[in-house]
Design a protein around this nucleic acid. Structure first.
Lengths: 181, 181
DNA sequence: AGGTGCAGTGCAACCCGTTGCATAGCTAGG
DNA sequence: CCTAGCTATGCAACGGGTTGCACTGCACCT
């Protein structure tokens, strides 16, 4: 149920097409809620049927036309309603833990390499998030309102990636063969 | 695709019924991959059709009969194959980030209370995991093989909960109204 | 000249997971 | 005595998400 509301949040900040929303997600709400263009298109249509958003067709030169969506009153009301509603705390969901748990039933060295690969990928994401932090929020102490919320969401992404890479390092340290230590 | 393999890992350690597996998940692999009994029953049946597992009916007194599943050779081979295969690094997926991101479009105080509630829940999980750590792995330096892997998975759960509660605290600190600081 | 990549929308099929419900008998507590 | 909760399995329906594919036209690189 969260994709609808994530789209409402994003469209409340600025109207946009499905394609634009997909790219925005990659850079911000996507830290907490990823989505493909397919899904976004489908959900936008459903939301329009429900009257939460409306769209305007925009003709472009040299590019395909696009549908720019705006939040309607009903959508704003729905978002407010949802924000006040409690949600279930989530649990981690990562296949890597399953692999590690089963490592002794297969090629343990391969699992270890996989963990190193994931560590590198998460470290790269961490670096990307930290670059955004430095560039867009150089003085976090002065923020308030919407900007402060955006910053705190980014902080969540940073903390998650830090913690994951640190865990991978712990695992690699513990499993690296004796000779390599 | 990971539930099948999580079940294979768990059944490789010890045979068991769907019900037992559901409870085991709550205490170990569940840190990384949660599952309901419904899903487990369905997947076990599918796995049996594929020849990965077999079951024995066990009659019990005063309790319903149960189906105890064992891993077959094909299942063992499949698990080994999967363990060597690369998987995609995951991204965080938590509605709470979406709510925080949209907080200024609704009742901000309610969102803050929700974040505090989640912090408490995650802190409780952290405490539960740490209790398991103390009880089952008092001397982690001496572990190796399967036990070491189990311990490291638990460490992943602990780190994730620590990092999440710390993030919630950061958010609460930053958003708490001036007077309350 | 040809391939890659971006911008833009969309269909169809599938898989995974959740929710609500049903059944059944035992045990423990109020 | 009755209700709640545990053990144990399962059906049916739905909703969310992923994957593969299709079409168009421009820009850029080799």
């Amino acid at each position: 149920m969260a994709l609808e509301h994530a789209l409402l949040v994003s469209l409340s900040e600025r109207e946009g097409s499905g394609y634009e929303l997909a790219r925005r997600f990659d850079r911000s709400i996507g830290f907490f809620w990823a989505a493909t263009h397919q899904q976004i298109y489908r959900v936008l249509r459903r939301m329009e049927e429900a009257g939460w958003v409306t769209h305007t067709d925009i003709a472009q030169e040299g590019r395909p036309d696009k549908k720019v969506y705006q939040v309607a009153d009903t959508g704003r009301a729905e978002l407010t309603r949802w924000l006040a509603e409690p949600i279930e705390p989530t649990t981690l969901r990562d296949e890597l833990g399953v692999k590690l748990r089963g490592a002794s039933l297969g090629d343990e060295a391969a699992v270890l390499r996989e963990i190193e690969r994931h560590r590198d990928e998460h470290a790269a994401r961490l670096a990307a998030y930290q670059a955004i932090e430095q560039r867009d929020f150089p003085k976090p102490g002065k923020l308030s309102g919407r900007e402060l919320h955006q910053y705190l969401v980014l902080r969540g992404g940073i903390r998650a990636e830090q913690s994951f890479t640190a865990w991978c390092d712990e695992v690699v340290q513990a499993l690296r063969p004796e000779g390599a230590r």
